[in-house]
Computed example of a mutant assay.
Amino acid sequence: MAAEVQAQGGARVTVYDAMPSAGRKFLMAGRGGLNLTHSEPLSEFMARYREAAPKLQATIEAFSPEALRAWSEALGEPTFVGTSGRVFPKAFKASPLLRAWLRRLDASGVRFAFRHRWTGWDDEGRLVFRAPDGVAVVTANATVLALGGASWPRLGSDGSWADILAAKGVAISKLRPANSGFTVAWSDVFRDRFEGQPLKGVALTIGAHTVRGEAMITRSGIEGGAIYALSAELREAVPSLGPATLSIALRPDLDAAALTTRLSGTRGKQSLANFLRKAAQLSPVGIGLMQEAAIVSGRPLAAFSPAELAHLINAIPVQLTGVAPIDRAISTAGGITFDELDGSFMLRKLPGVFAAGEMLDWEAPTGGYLLQASFATGAAAGRGVLAWLARS
């Protein structure tokens, strides 16, 4: 995006990419349909960026969700709003959009140099790359760093830039997993039976924060959209409190009294699992979670009274033992602090060097917010470069 803005402004641009081809993480994002942005009102949209919202407000207003949708349509990929309010290209994948984008960049004169991994600057301030033919040294009038966070390093963004910039005196907030899963010490029986099973229509709570949505049981823990929406709170709770307790409500639309009434009927010859499935409309994986909680409590689930079962259904305690590794997270928290940037996304300590995207210190849940801020900050850095070149 930075390259496109610069080329449209008349600059000669080369994109140096560590990977053999462009947009590998963009293509990964498209595996689930390429959620470009979200259709909710901008005030609600901006709140998703939490404490970074004031720093991103003007930037996203300048390249808004509506502008992003128009940009996609101009590339031949019209968008639609899903039932959740998320925005997708009608093709529902990333590859057609990326191909059209690369064709337009090529037509505007943008050059790509692949398999060039940036390793810093030499003593004369030139950019240094590890390239197929050895070390490549490049003199640039302006540089945009768009190096990503540290998640999915096999796609090119490994966070190694943090040490390079820190050595130049740039303040870097520690890179941490965002939109990540969490580890849970499931019993062998539960793990083997329910790995890969979804929890639908649940409410997840940590402290004062509650999110409704879906989650997924993994062999080592739990992940999914509702977990990602709480990942910042969960991530902070785990190291500070040791194992953190996540509360899961399986039937959040039914209160304890209504559930108790349903569960007070005669079970007859039904198994407890079958009774819970019919009386409270619980899924097998939900009943499995209740069994896990009963094991921890030291009481068999069959010994729970109807009122106790009703309470447990909407307050299943799940002990989170840790955060899934950063290389498996969807995105990264931390990065270059905004105080290190001027209003044009130029690094104050490195005149002529700009930064954009996930390497900046912001985070947001999935839902279109990650790509939107990456596009918007890229466009802002591109505008900043043009202004810098005009002054130089």
Rank of each mutant, 00 (worst) to 15 (best):
75 L>W: 12
338 F>T: 02
319 Q>A: 14
392 S>D: 02
6 Q>S: 11
223 E>I: 02
289 L>R: 02
116 H>Y: 11
143 T>P: 03
205 T>A: 05
136 A>W: 01
286 G>R: 02
313 I>C: 13
203 A>W: 08
69 R>W: 02
279 A>L: 04
351 P>V: 10
103 R>T: 13
226 A>Y: 06
31 R>P: 09
237 A>C: 14
128 V>S: 06
306 P>D: 14
12 R>G: 08
333 A>H: 07
69 R>C: 03
210 T>P: 10
361 D>P: 11
162 A>M: 07
222 I>R: 04
34 L>M: 03
386 L>A: 00
182 F>T: 00
66 E>Q: 15
310 A>C: 05
69 R>M: 11
305 S>D: 14
138 V>F: 11
293 A>H: 10
127 L>E: 09
336 I>N: 03
32 G>A: 02
77 E>R: 04
187 S>K: 11
344 S>L: 08
328 R>G: 09
120 G>D: 06
216 M>W: 07
365 P>M: 00
200 K>Y: 09
186 W>A: 04
146 A>I: 05
214 E>I: 02
104 R>K: 13
327 D>L: 05
149 G>I: 00
99 R>C: 07
362 W>Q: 08
385 V>D: 01
23 G>E: 02
353 V>Y: 00
300 P>Q: 01
231 S>R: 07
181 G>A: 10
62 A>C: 12
144 V>N: 03
315 A>K: 02
365 P>C: 03
218 T>Y: 14
275 F>H: 14
70 A>Y: 03
165 L>Q: 12
364 A>L: 08
217 I>R: 01
308 E>F: 10
160 S>V: 08
199 L>D: 14
54 P>R: 08
337 T>Y: 10
76 G>V: 03
304 F>T: 10
372 Q>M: 08
10 G>C: 04
314 N>L: 02
47 A>Y: 11
104 R>C: 05
123 D>A: 15
377 T>F: 01
61 E>K: 06
245 T>S: 13
362 W>S: 06
38 H>D: 14
110 V>N: 12
101 W>F: 15
319 Q>E: 12
392 S>N: 04
2 A>S: 11
85 G>L: 01
291 Q>I: 08
304 F>E: 05
323 V>N: 13
167 A>K: 09
197 Q>H: 13
162 A>T: 12
32 G>R: 01
145 L>S: 08
31 R>A: 13
220 S>W: 13
234 L>R: 00
223 E>F: 04
357 G>M: 01
195 E>S: 15
286 G>C: 06
290 M>V: 00
329 A>N: 03
263 L>V: 12
295 I>Q: 11
322 G>N: 14
261 T>V: 12
365 P>F: 00
328 R>E: 15
264 S>P: 10
277 R>P: 05
127 L>H: 08
271 S>C: 13
234 L>P: 09
345 F>D: 13
213 G>C: 07
198 P>L: 02
194 F>K: 03
46 M>K: 04
160 S>R: 15
166 A>H: 06
94 A>W: 00
72 S>N: 12
239 P>Q: 03
354 F>Q: 03
33 G>C: 04
24 R>E: 15
371 L>E: 09
40 E>R: 13
195 E>Q: 14
150 A>C: 10
16 Y>V: 07
90 K>T: 10
171 A>M: 07
227 I>D: 07
14 T>K: 00
73 E>I: 03
339 D>V: 07
337 T>F: 09
20 P>C: 01
8 Q>W: 07
299 R>I: 13
33 G>K: 04
191 R>P: 11
